[in-house]
Amino acid sequence: MLEDIVHILPQELKAIIYHLPMEVKHSLEEIRIRENRPLEISHRGSFHYATEQGKLVLDPRQAYQPSHEQCRKLLERITNYSLYAMEEELRRGYITIAGGHRIGIAGRTILDGGSVRGIRDIGGFNIRIAREVVGAAKQLLPKLFAGPGGSLQSTLMISPPQQGKTTMLRDVARSLSYGSHGKQLPMKVAIVDERSEIAASVRGIPSFDVGPRTDVMDACPKAEGMMMLLRSMSPDVIIVDEIGRVEDALAIREAAHCGVKVIATAHAYDVQEVLGRSEIRGLIQEKAFGSIVELKRSQHGFMHRIIAVDRLLEHSRQNSGFFSLSRKAGS
């Protein structure tokens, strides 16, 4: 797994990463490279600077400082010597490399009529190590088949950031595509991967195993991607990350009309908060989603709580209705 990362690093940095303590190497989360400034390593939630010998220290003065030459070489290797072919990635601010790792970049932006057209004079890199957790959704999967006759239900997964939404979504896609959950035959899965996070495609080919019957629309706006996939790939289920805009809601309705299930995620701490977002509230009221899953990551792995939308609607009717719920979330 580290091979993909080490492969792109210039010699000096490669040696440092190679000499890091074993347990750090295994729990590596980010390598932050800033030109002529201390080399930072973050692992399992904490951070350190790294010295030339690969020792971890907290004093930035002892840390190794990558040179201009090294940063330039790193950039060349990340872009495969072809910055010109990365204009879209530079506008987004990150590049996905083989293995699904994402490299965030910072530097001086080029503006075009007030909007960012790209980045030049790149002086900061944040290499984020991607880890695939096969089987993350094992517990959750059987509960998604709560529709009539044990069929798959459209599901909205919610959680705060950094709690494993994307990891979970990826494993759901993979399991449905393989049919490994044992509930149903392998399904045709379509992923709209606007931020190249779910499948981490490199040149259109997924870096992660997302299953044999999965099609990925990479770097595509969600709503448009969903419509394209509905028309072109006849999926059984569409997987999409971070919904919330008006267009997204329209596309999800369209999918529901076609009988295609949607498994989507949204940023929110709990059901109350997600109901405060009008587009998503609308979808829930229309029962475009059969259930909502709250996700949390604890030390023991992924935790989830499933809320059936029918029950939720019933509950809110008996109490003072949806709007009191949403007001509570807003306050």
Partner: peptide, 8 residues
């Protein structure tokens, strides 16, 4: 070569 946008 390679290290700027297409236009350049």
């Amino acid at each position: 070569l390679g290290m700027s946008n297409a236009e350049d």
